[in-house]
Write a protein that binds this DNA or RNA. Structure first.
Length: 778
DNA sequence: CGCGGGACTTAGTAGTGTGAGT
DNA sequence: ACTCACACTACTAAGTCCCGCG
């Protein structure tokens, strides 16, 4: 399969599944009498039972439950016996220093310096010294943390100095003519309430504002705020009587105004903003300058929860300095809070990596101000993450062997553990922790419920559920026979829709089990591992040939396999359908033009048709209807273009204070197009295009060639659009694919790294760019 | 063990800045 | 030169996982 071919989900699944399947001899999977027994215990229920009112779903108490079904011919040892014996393959590396192949770096620096000069032995010493010196010099500029010894996990920093955070500007009341109307009456809202109304007004045309939950939550909080600040002239009771349209129009006009500002004005505004933000953008970490990530306190607004979030639309309250906790060195200068305010708290906790923190009022959780992605702290933890994932490859075989065996364990809990591990490993599911009633109903592996999977014998499973961010996970896959059997057992009555499939295990239990194989191994590591492993495998399939653009396309195709594996989606943009339509229309038109040109050649030299039948084979591929349709479209477009051109020319003349073109010019032009339409109509009848006197066979052939390359390009573009329309490559590139793979690809395939990483990603992954070479492997 | 608090990574999208195509 | 779609960045929501407590 060429890597740019579309790959379906199940193909990806197969691709991924093969190693594990290979490692278990079929003989190990004994046949099961239940396979053929009634499937009647699989109701096709897809409707979800109302959530248990207690909030928490039931989880069986007796973890010791033994599977008493027909499966008990299994002679496997219960896990209990195994549990005490952690896998011997504990990592030696875990204690060693975290260093990114320092040697290879310096070596490379060397060879770079040496090779061009072809000097050998003696100079290599000098070169090394020079390299070291250069490195040290650079260190003034950029701290090469990945060449340092690891400062053992516990402590995150030695010293930390920063300038605090930026607060959003205070609310500025709307001009007095912009009001909320209630039941036709002007409402005079106190500023605080007006602000909240404005939040809604600004969103009036969004999907959120049309969502009843959003409306209710907003309205409830809006009324609360009105009450808090002493009410207003009109008693507001009914959301539907509120008219926010004046506010909306005002915000729109303000937006237009802003857009209409001249280039210089915009620049000036931006310069001023930058100047104000300058001090907050960086901080001093262990004496070195580092970027801060989100130094701005989140502004108040309406909470935009994703999916069916019960709290969506609630008011996200303004955060004041009193709500903010700062974290910095004991001896650091404490930034001045905004005038008239005090900081909530000042801490000196070097076991954490945040600069400031506050509590938000929606879920009552914390928000943090942290270092930027390109900081040494983030880089180091990113590096560690990938190293952990990379280590997994030394254990994965054993893990797979074990869980395949444990799929038949007689202990229900163990079977669930094994089955869950299988799903996490093969289908890249997330762990899936419990969620409360106050959150959107989304699931991961351990929180999968009865209604989320459908079983189709002999071994097909259909997953259909909402995962993180309420993104739908829909896959029809084939699983190991034993997995299928187990899933059926997990669905057996009395289980019914609404019940957990994995009712005896939790993510912490899984993770605890994983630690037995390898320090730091948790459920999410499987995603990182499998993503990077897939990428490595895909890159291995790419031939080192073609143009840079072609290679980038192949790289993206590989990237896409990973994104599909991880189910990274994006919503198709509103215009997508029409865009695709337009491109395919354009494509058809080009084909028509090509065929038309070929017909012309025959007109010029009818003998050619016999001489090269293949070349002319396609000339009648388009139906009359198609052709007519295309004619219409072409004429339509030309007319439109004529109108536009006329308008533009006149506008220009107007500006130059010259005489405008008379309507007759436009008319004349349109008439010419009508003539063309006539010609086309004739052509349609005769099937013989009119050939210009100046045309020759050679000229036409050249034109055809041009069009053909355009057709190829456009076809490609269209395909890429369609393939990519719902897949988001960015997330996997940023979080799952070891950046050293990308760097390796860049070097090995001679593709500039700029084509693969954006500026931000290059900064974030600088450690990888500096440390991986063309034969680095995950 | 189970739970809640806390800190961190992962995720899609809104809103821009910008460069390819005309 | 001008648009207009696209690519990137900023933003912040939504996960995971760890820890300490009862």
């Amino acid at each position: 399969m060429s890597s740019d071919d579309e790959m379906t989900l199940s193909e990806v699944g197969k691709l991924r599944r093969s190693p594990s399947v290979d490692s278990i001899p079929l003989s190990q999977m004994d046949s099961d009498p239940t396979t053929t027994s009634a499937d009647s215990d699989m109701p096709k229920v897809s409707k979800r039972k109302a959530k248990n009112s207690e909030g928490k779903r039931k989880r069986a108490k007796k973890a010791t439950a033994v599977i008493k079904d027909e499966d008990n011919e299994d002679e496997d040892v219960p896990l209990a016996q195994r549990e005490g014996s952690p896998k011997k393959s504990t990592t030696k590396k875990s204690t060693s220093k975290v260093k990114v192949e320092k040697e290879s770096v310096s070596k490379k620096t060397n060879s770079k310096k040496v090779t061009p000069k072809k000097e050998e032995k003696e100079s290599s010493v000098d070169a090394e010294a020079a390299a070291v010196a250069a490195a040290e010099e650079e260190e003034e500029e950029k701290y090469r943390w990945w060449e340092q010894e690891d400062v053992d996990g516990e402590q995150k920093w030695e010293s930390l100095h920063h300038n605090g955070v930026i607060f959003p500007p205070e609310y500025e009341p709307l001009p007095s003519h912009v009001k909320l109307y209630y039941d036709g009456k002007v409402v005079n809202l106190p500023p605080q309430a007006e602000e909240v109304a404005g939040f809604f007004g600004a969103m009036l045309e969004t999907d959120h504002a049309k969502n009843p939950t959003f409306q209710n939550n907003f309205f409830e909080d809006f009324l609360q705020v009105i009450k808090e600040c002493g009410g207003c002239n009109v008693e507001i009771k009914d959301f539907n009587k509120c008219d926010f349209s004046k506010m909306y129009t005002y915000f729109e006009s303000e937006r237009e105004k802003k857009k209409a500002l001249s280039r210089d004005e915009k620049k000036a505004i931006k310069a001023e903003k930058d100047k104000l933000e300058e001090p907050y953008k960086t901080c001093l970490l262990n004496g070195r300058k580092e970027q801060v990530g989100n130094f701005r306190i989140e502004p108040p607004g309406l909470f935009r929860g994703r999916g069916a979030h019960p709290k969506t639309g609630k008011l996200k309250r303004r955060v004041y300095p009193e709500d903010v906790t700062l974290n910095l060195s004991k001896d650091a200068n404490i930034p001045e809070p905004p005038a008239g305010h005090k900081w909530g708290e000042v801490r000196h906790d070097n076991a954490v990596a945040w600069l400031a923190m506050w509590k938000e009022n929606i879920a009552d959780s914390f928000k943090y101000v942290r270092f930027a992605a390109n900081s040494s702290i983030k880089g180091l933890s990113d590096f560690k993450k990938f190293e952990t994932a990379r280590q997994l490859k030394d254990h994965i075989e054993e893990i797979r062997k074990d869980y395949n065996k444990m799929l038949k364990d007689e202990l229900m809990q163990n079977r669930q553990m094994a089955t869950a591990t299988y799903l996490i490993d093969i289908f890249a599911l997330r762990a899936g922790g419990e969620k409360g009633d106050e959150e959107a109903d989304t699931v991961g592996c351990c929180s999968l419920r009865y209604e989320h999977i459908t079983l189709k014998p002999p071994n097909k499973v259909i997953f259909d559920f909402l995962g993180k961010d309420s993104i739908r996970f829909y896959q029809e896959v084939e699983v190991e026979k034993q997995v299928f059997k187990n899933l059926r057992i997990f669905k057996k009555p009395p289980k019914q829709p609404g019940d957990d499939l994995f009712d005896r295990i939790t993510p912490p239990m899984l993770n605890k089990q994983f630690q037995n194989y390898m320090k730091g191994l948790t459920a999410k590591v499987f995603r990182t591992y499998n993503a990077s492993k897939t990428m490595q495998d895909q890159i291995d399939l790419i031939p080192n040939e073609g143009t840079v653009a072609e290679k980038v396309v192949k790289f993206n195709a590989a990237n896409r396999t990973v994104a599909i594996l991880c189910n990274h989606q994006r919503t198709v943009s509103k215009g997508h359908g029409s865009v695709v339509q337009r491109i395919s229309d354009k494509l058809k038109e080009m084909v028509w033009q090509k065929l038309r040109l070929k017909k012309m050649i025959i007109e010029l030299d009818p003998k050619l048709k016999k001489k090269d039948p293949k070349y002319f084979e396609e000339i009648n591929d388009l139906t009359k209807e198609d052709e007519e349709h295309i004619h219409k479209a072409v004429i339509e477009r030309q007319k439109e273009a004529a109108h536009k051109r006329f308008q533009r020319e006149n506008e220009k003349l107007k500006v130059e204070d010259q005489e405008l073109l008379p309507e007759s010019v436009l008319k004349e032009r349109l008439e010419k197009i009508d003539e063309l339409a006539q010609e086309y109509a004739e052509e349609l009848k005769s099937n013989k295009p009119i050939v210009k006197k100046t045309d020759t066979v050679e000229k036409l052939k050249a034109q055809i060639e041009k069009i053909e390359t355009r057709i190829v390009n456009t076809t490609f573009q269209l395909k890429d659009k369609e393939d990519n329309s719902e897949v988001s490559l960015g997330t996997s590139k940023m979080n799952y694919i070891d950046p050293r793979l990308t760097v390796m690809f860049s070097k090995k395939f001679d593709v500039p790294i700029e084509k693969l990483f954006t500026k931000t990603l290059r900064e974030k992954f600088n450690w990888a760019i500096e440390s991986a070479d063309d034969n680095w492997r995950f």
